[in-house]
Every structure is written in structure tokens, then in C-alpha cells.
Amino acid sequence: MTQSSVMPPESRSRASDSLYGLALGDALGSQFYVPANRQARDDRLLPPGPWQWTDDTEMACSVHRVLTRRGTIDQDELAASFAARHDFDRGYGPATNRMLRLVREGGDWRALASGLFDGSGSWGNGAAMRVAPLGAWFAGDPARAVREARASAEVTHTHPEAVAGAVAVAVAASVAAGSADLTPGSFLDQVLSHTPPSLVREGIAEARRLLPLADPVLAARALGNGREVSAQDTVPFTLWAAARHLGDYEQAFWTTAAAGGDIDTTCAIVGGIIGTRAPLPPGWLNSCEPLPAWAYETSPR
């Protein structure tokens, strides 16, 4: 019997809701990299489907798969799933492409991840972009979400900023999924209380101060919008956007997309958080690429 077989069904349901929200944000957000669609974004018009998701969703599916099978993050299994499911055409960064290829060829993920960028490890936003379903799995237990998010991040991102980004997003999803009554301020306060000292945490504290600000473009000027593809340039703004629209997926998406930058990733993070507590627009889901069946496997093939 695997650990996942004794997990409450609501854990799997919440994680699945988050995964769908993440995939939809990723897939629709990715459409706005096309120059012809940028005016449509500004006018809040949906581009024609189907919308294909990117590496954000592909990696999140592996996180969900491991949790479904184990009920916890098994780092070796997660690394193997990342490598086996790696589709070069999904938009992975060059360092991750190389690392996952080497893992498939028998390389040690621990040595490869820690050796990135001259031994400092990656501080990119990749660990944060995929982690919301993990936080939803541990809804209402942010301390457990912290431990599991750290384990999930270290498989590819060992830099403390990347780990802090993954922790913050996981805690955000855990709190969003587990608390019926939340204010924007109490939401970010709980995230701050579990995020380790870092530039990411400093950015979230600034996001907390900027909650009265309504303009996402101005917020992104202060917080970043993922353009630098770092955790510290991505996570604070996404948590600001999520905090301002905790009950409205559609509004949260357009607010996030309006800031530009790494739109598929910022919208994936926000979508994964808001998807735990707000319904997804049905018409949007119909245009989104379906999730792969392997993301829900409960036992080896």
C-alpha cells in the first residue's frame, strides 16, 4: 500500500483543482507571447484555442503524480519523472534541458542540481512555478507544505532564493485551500510567517505594503514580473495579484497578465493558488490542452 492510498480524498481533490488552475493560467498566459495577441490581452479578449501549456504544467504534473503515488515528495522519483516526461518543445530553459537530459542518461540529479551556475545552484522561478498543487495537497498545514516544497525545489533548484520562492508559493496555496475566510493582508501575513529570510521574502513584504495599489503595472515595477526569470523577480508580484483576487480566478488572471513579463509562469503560479478556492471559467477550460493521464497515476505501470 502506498502512502497516497491512505491520504484523505480531499487532499487529492484540492491538488487537482490547483493543477487545473495552474495549467489554465499557463496555457492561456503563454498565448500572449505572440505579438498579435498582445492587444487582445490589453483588451481582455481571449485568443483562439486550443491553448497549449508549457514546461510549467509539465513539471507540475510530475509533482502531482508523485504526491498521488506517495503522499509525500520522494526526490528520486520526482527527478526521474521530470526526466522521463521532459519535452524539449515545452519551453524549458537551457540549464534545465541539459540537466534533465543528463539525468535520463544516468546522471546524479543531486550533483547536477547543486553544480548549476558554478556551484551556486539555480535561483530561477522553475521550482515556484510548479509547486502550487503541493501546497493544495497539504491544505491548512503550511508547516508541512514548507518541508515538502523545499524537497521538491532541491531536485532542480538548490539556491536559497529559488527554495524560498517555492516555499512561499506552496504556503500560499496551502493557506488559500485551507482557509475559508481570508483577507488579502492575512493571506500574505501567513505566507511571510513561513518564508525564510531572502530577497523573495523582502519582496513579499513589499507586496504586503502595496496591497492598496490597484494598478498591476505599477505593482510589477516595484515587485518584478518574472522578466528576469528569477524567484525574487517573480514570486512577490504573483502573491500580490493572488492576494487581491482570492475569490475570482478570471480577475486574478487578467490582473497578472496585464503586467507582462514571464506571463505563462506568473499566470501559472496565480492560477494554481486561486484554483484551490475559486471556480475556473468553463469556457476557458474548453480551450485549454487537456492534462495528461499520467499525472494521476497511483501505481507503477
Rank of each mutant, 00 (worst) to 15 (best):
S4Q: 11
P8I: 03
E10L: 11
S11M: 13
R12V: 12
S13A: 14
A15R: 04
S16T: 13
S16I: 08
L19C: 03
L24P: 10
L24N: 03
L28Y: 08
G29V: 05
S30E: 14
S30M: 06
Y33L: 07
Y33R: 09
A36W: 04
Q39I: 12
R41S: 09
D42S: 13
L46I: 15
L46N: 01
P50H: 09
W51C: 04
W51A: 03
W53N: 00
T54M: 07
T54E: 12
T54H: 09
D55L: 10
E58V: 00
M59Y: 01
A60F: 11
R65H: 15
V66L: 02
L67I: 06
L78A: 09
L78E: 06
A80L: 08
Y92V: 12
Y92F: 12
P94M: 05
N97W: 01
M99V: 07
V103H: 01
D108A: 02
D108F: 07
A111H: 11
L112D: 08
W123F: 12
W123C: 12
W123K: 13
A128D: 09
R130P: 13
V131E: 01
L134K: 10
W137I: 03
A139R: 03
D141Y: 13
D141L: 12
A143P: 03
R144A: 12
V146A: 07
R147W: 10
S152G: 05
S152I: 01
E154A: 06
E154P: 00
V155G: 08
H157N: 11
A162R: 01
G165E: 02
V169L: 06
A170D: 06
A173W: 11
A173S: 15
S174D: 05
A176D: 07
A177H: 01
A180R: 13
S193H: 11
T195N: 02
S198G: 08
L199P: 12
V200S: 03
I204H: 04
A205Y: 04
A205V: 00
R208F: 08
R208S: 05
R209Q: 10
A219D: 03
A222K: 13
L223F: 04
R227N: 08
E228H: 14
A231Q: 01
A231F: 04
Q232W: 06
T234Y: 04
F237D: 04
A242I: 09
L246C: 06
D248Q: 07
Y249C: 02
A257Q: 06
A258W: 06
A259E: 07
P282G: 11
E289M: 13
L291M: 06
P292R: 05
A293R: 12
A295F: 03
S299F: 00
